[in-house]
Computed example of a mutant assay.
Amino acid sequence: MATKTLSMHGSAGIGKSWAAPTATFISKRPARPGYSEVDASEYSDSEDVLRAKVVCMADLIRASSNFIVYSGAGISTSSGISDYASKTSAKVPLAKTGFSAQASFAHYTLVELYKMGMLKRWIQQNHDGLPQKAGLPQKAINEIHGAWFDPTNPVVKFSGELKGDLYEDLLAWEERADLCLAVGTSMSGMSADRVFTTVSEKAAENQDGILGGIIVNKQKTQYDNLATLRIFADINTVFEMLCEELEIAKPTPSQYSRCTFENQPDAQNDRFTLTRYDRKGRRVEEGTEGDCVLDLSVGSKVVLLSGAKEGTRGEVTGTNREGHYKIRFMVKLKKTGSLRPIERTLGWWWIEAAVNGDVDLLPIVNVGGRRKNSK
């Protein structure tokens, strides 16, 4: 009975008379074939049980000193981003392009928790940039599986390697976290799942100050019995209730738009004076003035400063509808050694981070002349 309670409610449900979640969609197909045998069926807590669980969730967040979020595709489905693991026919219309998708209520609520000092780090499996569109600064997120808006961090395939600095950051927060909220992720055995499993195992061992893990997902996961709290419900509904329990104003999602800079008079010409960085894109010491000017006007030449393609050169070709920069890089094909063009996007929030001096190393800097790419 205790094992069943753990899988349905988490350890917080032991001794409580919470009803079992009911099935809302039945499937015998695995959610992620080859990674986990958990099927794609979906479940829902009753309204009274859900309310009780959200009260518990709010209490855990208040008690936490190092609360982190580990998000998967499920947090973005209401924004029109497809979810590989979900097999239900109850789909929302997909965004015409993932680059134009807008942040959901859940994204905005988590950003509000960050601004309030409650949320310390966001580990993001998705590539969609929706946390940043909701207002999360780039310095607060680890896009561990790749990012559409970071040319140094292309999407990582299942068999690929994680970016070194991001993996080190993941390990640091694995050790630091006292509470991890896994939201919208099937947690089918990816390396990054450790940020949830480690803190949950510490809680099971009653380590001092460790609160464990919360899972919010309609589908079962292989780690349900590790959770301190297990919630089966619509993600946005959970966060609406959480706002009420934490007594914070419910955020209003809006269309993403670029910010403006009072101290960047040449920004309309796509040129930015970055006094916190040197010409190699490295952040200078506090009190020192850097000499980096980043020119992102059409035709400007740039070079990648990190990642597997470090040193690859590209050319700015324009901006998309939201104002993010499009850059064409020439990359070498492994089989033939020939060059082919690929387009990558630099999210506007990287410009915000650069102006504010938020990151240690910029993703790109300019290179002189209009030389052909060296890679």
Rank of each mutant, 00 (worst) to 15 (best):
K4I: 11
T5L: 14
L6M: 12
M8F: 14
G10K: 01
G13D: 11
P21W: 08
P21D: 07
A23R: 15
T24Y: 10
R29Y: 08
P30R: 07
P33R: 06
S36A: 12
S36Q: 07
E37I: 14
E37F: 11
V38N: 03
A40Y: 05
S44P: 00
L50W: 06
L50M: 06
V54Q: 01
A58H: 03
L60N: 01
R62A: 10
N66I: 04
Y70C: 05
Y70M: 13
A73P: 00
A73W: 06
I75E: 02
S76R: 06
G80R: 02
D83S: 09
D83N: 12
Y84D: 06
T88E: 07
S89P: 07
S89C: 10
A90T: 06
K96P: 02
K96R: 10
G98E: 09
S100I: 15
Q102P: 01
S104I: 02
S104R: 01
F105C: 01
A106P: 00
T109G: 02
E112M: 05
K115Q: 15
G117T: 09
L119W: 07
Q125A: 07
H127R: 10
G129Q: 08
P131D: 08
P131G: 07
Q132C: 09
A134C: 09
G135I: 05
L136S: 01
N142C: 14
W148Y: 15
W148P: 00
D150P: 00
P151G: 09
T152A: 06
N153K: 13
P154A: 12
P154Y: 08
V155N: 08
F158I: 12
G160S: 11
Y167S: 01
D169Q: 13
L170F: 05
L171Q: 13
E174S: 12
E174I: 03
R176M: 10
A177F: 02
C180P: 00
S188L: 00
M190D: 13
A192W: 04
T197D: 07
K202E: 11
Q219T: 07
K220A: 14
K220S: 14
N225K: 15
F232N: 00
F232C: 01
A233D: 12
N236Q: 02
M241P: 00
M241E: 12
L242M: 09
C243E: 06
E244T: 15
E244K: 15
L246W: 09
A249E: 15
K250H: 07
P253Q: 04
Q255F: 11
Y256C: 03
S257C: 10
S257E: 15
T260C: 10
F261N: 04
F261S: 04
Q264K: 11
D266E: 15
N269Y: 11
F272S: 04
T273A: 10
Y277R: 01
R279L: 12
E286V: 10
T288L: 12
E289L: 13
E289P: 01
G290Q: 03
G290I: 05
C292N: 04
C292P: 00
D295K: 11
K301N: 10
V302Y: 08
V303N: 03
L305N: 10
E310H: 09
T312L: 04
G314T: 06
G314M: 09
V316P: 00
T317F: 02
T317A: 03
R321M: 12
G323A: 07
R328M: 12
M330R: 11
M330I: 10
K332W: 03
K332I: 13
L333F: 06
S338Y: 11
R344E: 14
W350V: 02
G357Y: 05
D358E: 15
L362S: 05
L362M: 13
G369N: 06
N373M: 12
